[in-house]
């Protein structure tokens, strides 16, 4: 008897719910948290002292993470109501921020965990940056900021370590957020949080490459320190891009062998010129080569900012294409 096995029939359908806005949210969330993570790591693990670079970087990190959050809210329905004059609807978002888990006992939602991580990262990171305000260019000219910062100076170390852990959480969260969709093979992938974490760290190092290249410092000591940090982050990024390539390979390997829907996504993603040419080639392999050349040949340092910009471009494209290829595998025929 030849027949069609009903249970083997599948339908593949792209998701249209989370688009560019959420990709920006994930990208800026990862980038901002990575900038904050690297600032605290340089200060408290490697014991480097560049208050201006670290404070301003941390403030930028906090700003980026929260600015990215706006794009998530813009994607929500409450925004529609807000635009139509129902201004109180927007405050529903605070339910997520301040932990509806307390009221309903559901501690699983990653948006809620992420919102809390972002909130703690923002508060702790802000206080940590302010605790160095007295030695930070421009900030040290604002009297009340210095006064507030001085209150938190005694606990600067504690704030730094807590910020570091919350930043790590924010970076990984961007991957966990997508993992809640069991029928989307490109999202419910065990490697996604790791991949996003590596990619976020890579974009974070790109920021420090740009800073140390363009703002080399006024005094000799700062110049020397920034050159040292610049060189370190370049090598760190070379290692991170290598790891990212490995993670991408493992991601596709699992996608291909683990799911029927995964095979479908595998073929579509790897035949998309935007993903292969834009992300894999321009956003990953080219900057990897450029960074390697710049690290080895001192006269070609001009390649550093170009590589850093490409890494940032690649970081966004990775998130955009992962969202774009969020293809459902539905258990019915079409």
């Amino acid at each position: 008897m030849v027949g069609i096995d009903f249970h083997q029939l599948l339908t593949f359908e792209p998701q249209h719910h989370w688009g560019v806005g959420v990709a920006i949210y994930l990208f800026l969330g990862g980038l901002g948290a990575a900038i904050g993570f690297l600032a605290t790591m340089y200060k408290h693990v490697f014991k480097k002292d560049d208050p201006s670079m670290f404070s301003w970087s941390m403030l930028l990190g906090v700003l980026l993470v929260n600015f990215g959050g706006i794009f998530l809210v813009l994607d929500m329905f409450v925004w529609e109501s807000f635009l139509h004059g129902h201004i109180f609807e927007i405050f529903k978002v605070l339910l997520a921020l301040f932990g509806a888990a307390v009221f309903n006992g559901n501690f699983h939602p990653w948006i809620q965990i992420g919102a809390n991580l972002i909130m703690w990262f923002s508060i702790l990171g802000l206080l940590w940056a302010l605790s160095m305000a007295d030695r930070t260019a421009l900030l040290n000219k604002i009297g009340f900021v210095v006064k507030i910062g001085n209150i938190f100076k005694p606990i600067q170390g504690l704030l730094g370590w807590l910020t570091m852990f919350s930043a790590l959480g924010v970076m990984a969260y961007t991957g966990f957020l997508l993992s809640v969709a069991p029928s989307i093979p490109a999202w419910s992938h065990p490697l996604l949080p790791v991949l996003f974490l590596i990619s976020a760290l890579s974009t974070g190092t790109a920021w420090y490459m740009l800073w140390t290249y363009f703002a080399r410092g006024k005094d000799e000591q700062t110049k020397e320190l920034r050159e040292h940090i610049g060189h370190q982050v370049e090598w760190a990024d070379i290692a991170l891009i290598g790891l990212e390539l490995l993670a991408i390979g493992a991601y596709f390997n699992y996608l291909y062998y683990a799911y029927a829907g995964g095979k479908y996504v595998f073929h579509h993603m790897l035949s998309d010129m935007g993903f292969v040419g834009g992300f894999l080639f321009l956003g990953l392999i080219i900057p990897w080569i450029l960074e390697f050349i710049a690290a080895k040949v001192h006269s070609l340092r001009i390649l550093v900012p170009l590589a850093a910009l490409l890494v940032l471009f690649g970081g966004f494209l990775l998130r955009y294409y992962i969202l774009h290829y969020g293809i459902y595998t539905y258990p019915w025929p079409s």
Binding site: E13, L72, V78, E80, H84, A96, A181, P182, S183, I184
Partner: peptide, 23 residues
């Protein structure tokens, strides 16, 4: 009254059972 329209549930549903009831 509690839904903020983040659509996390819509993406999580493996059976395409949810949709946006827009403004």
């Amino acid at each position: 009254d509690l839904c903020i329209g983040c659509e996390a549930c819509v993406t999580a549903c493996p059976y395409d059972a949810r949709y946006r009831y827009d403004y």
